[in-house]
Design a protein around this nucleic acid. Sequence first.
RNA 1: GGGCUGAUAGCUCAAUGGUAGAGCAGCGUCCUUUUAAGUCGUUGGUUCUGGGUUCGAAUCCCAGUCAGCCCA
Length: 496
Amino acid sequence: MSDQPLDISHDQHAVRLSKLAEMRAAGIDPFRAEFQTTHFSDAARRAYVDGQDYTVKVAVAGRLVVIRDMGKSQFVKIFDQQSGGAEGPLQLYVKKDLVGDESYAAFKKLDLGDILGAEGTLFKTKTGEITVRVDRYVLLAKALRPLPEKWHGLSDPEQVYRQRYLDLIVNPESRSRLLLRSRIVSHVRRFLEDRQFVEVETPVLQSVAGGAAARPFTTHHNALGMDFVLRISLELYLKRLLVGGIDRVFEIGRNFRNEGISRRHNPEFTMLEVYQAYSDYRGMMGLVRELLLSLCQTVLGTTRIRHAASGQDIEFAGEWREVPYRDLIREATGDADWFKRSKAEKIAGAEALGLKVDPSWEDFEVTNEIFSKRIEPGLIQPTFVTHLPRELCPLAKLNREDPTVLDVFELTIGGMEIAPAYSEQNDPLEQRRMFEAQAGGEQQNVDQDFLFALEHGMPPAGGMGIGIDRLCILLTGAESIRDVILFPQLRTTPAP
RNA sequence: GGGCUGAUAGCUCAAUGGUAGAGCAGCGUCCUUUUAAGUCGUUGGUUCUGGGUUCGAAUCCCAGUCAGCCCA
């Protein structure tokens, strides 16, 4: 072995570990330091009084993201929860003759990424930036790993998703998009609570995966010796609560579907479901329109949003188009008698529209393929597609005049299904027939406990679901569901 | 599940089949109002993994891993 110390200057992790060891040798443990803040960065800037430099005292803390060392003084910037706006991280000014020689020498050894607290007074620099002139600082946590590059940020999509914490630090667009999601969810809650809706939590572990058609995740409870599924929908438990007299009820919760992953699908996703007794699908139209309008106004500050994929602006104010499903199909196929055609004719019609159709599909599935592939993607402006064929959802009421269709709508915006809503089926006998037809004789797939609850009487009600992730895609202009989920599902790999 | 594309320094990216480079970050120096600060110098590579072709592979071929996009 050589007596020469190894050159570790190229290995940033090793350099930082050795800086930490030096500090500890000098009796300083930066992970045990304490500090009380008085302001977030934005509040500190607001606390500045024009023309009154060095009078207002603040204590701020955050992550060091910029260092401009000028020898005997430095400008640095710290990043905290509130520094995501236009002004960005808060600037600190550290002068050797103010903090003292020893403290200044230690400051020079700090690294980008370190978390520190600083006390000082506010002033405005020559170029007009409100800055904290530091009297005292404390290192609160040493960062042993370097941050991504300051100008280009983190752009490798894999790292953006796997190391979201870095994405949040260095990519302001990611940060504001994901924080916007929090504001959207928060506003949805407030909107519904203002209208006397009660928020509840229902079981995620269920013995029957009801309320939707999807493959569930399965798991096992050891003590009970029972298999469970993770819920694929919130619907059947919320309806039990309608039976229980909670007339306006909602849940914002995670559903799990054991299916493909794509730009529009994550195996776990967030649904809002709302039920209102003594209302119906038409009542839900008003509710969802008001909700989205107020979301746009309060969260985005505009009712018009840019839809990049189509190049159109989506306008939320004004009347929303309302059109029966069958009219859209007749229009798309150019066949006024579409619904009188045989299955073979429908398959031919779908193929004429360039669709691949599985001959084993049912009639209505062939037609619905046309809807989801050729019609829905073109519905950019908010559109209520009403009166879907009865085969498409077994939990809604049949239309009184035309019992082949349902009293339901699907709200479509930006080519995406945003909110389905029903006049909820509350006839327990009819509900049982629908379930049994859907289960195809597999009784274990019928939620008997729910049907038993319905037999006690559920008030007539309107119900609606909103996929929160898709709503966020729409309102934030994101390209993928992964961009509105903090930690999207990826294959697990060993830590780097 | 199928197709296409990609993986090079901590990060962002270069590199006709012929010595793997740059910017930022790091390390060392100068600078007490900077704004992607500036200045001078400088370290750093299992080119995703494993095979193959070739005198020679980051580059071509095969297999795999991971990711993105499209399709189912």
